[in-house]
């Protein structure tokens, strides 16, 4: 059973990674990252349940992941808004002034 959950987690993580790497829009990249976090949550929960249910470490990982997700979302939208207000763009690659 654990393997199935881990497989699911891996699939979520991979799809999220693919999305983060391939999407142009900033928000879509964030979505990819969220998907990756979802995969991590799944994996952590499964591992907790099947391997070490006695301690609370796994649960805390899940909570930490959710917190991370929230914070990252907030930060991400703030950055997106700031970028749009400043440069009038919404794709990550459009901001390429800083290079070399």
């Amino acid at each position: 059973m654990l393997e199935l959950f881990l497989l699911l987690a891996a699939a979520l993580f991979s799809v999220g990674l693919y999305g983060a790497l391939s999407q142009q829009s900033i928000v879509m990249i964030m979505m990819g990252i969220e998907l990756m976090i979802a995969g991590v949550i799944t994996a952590a929960a499964a591992l907790w349940h099947f391997l070490a249910p006695a301690a609370a470490d796994g649960q805390v990982i899940v909570v930490a992941a959710v917190v991370a997700m929230a914070v990252e979302m907030a930060m991400g939208f703030a950055v997106t808004t700031a970028v749009f207000r400043s440069r009038d763009i919404d794709t990550a690659d459009a901001a390429e002034d800083l290079k070399g």
């Binding site: 790497l21 901001a95 390429e96 290079k99 070399g100």
Partner: peptide, 17 residues
């Protein structure tokens, strides 16, 4: 050595990955 720093984020992502 300066060429990897292209300024394009998804290339940074790709190189890091």
């Amino acid at each position: 050595a300066r060429r990897p720093q292209t300024g394009l984020l998804h290339q940074y992502y790709a190189q890091a990955a």
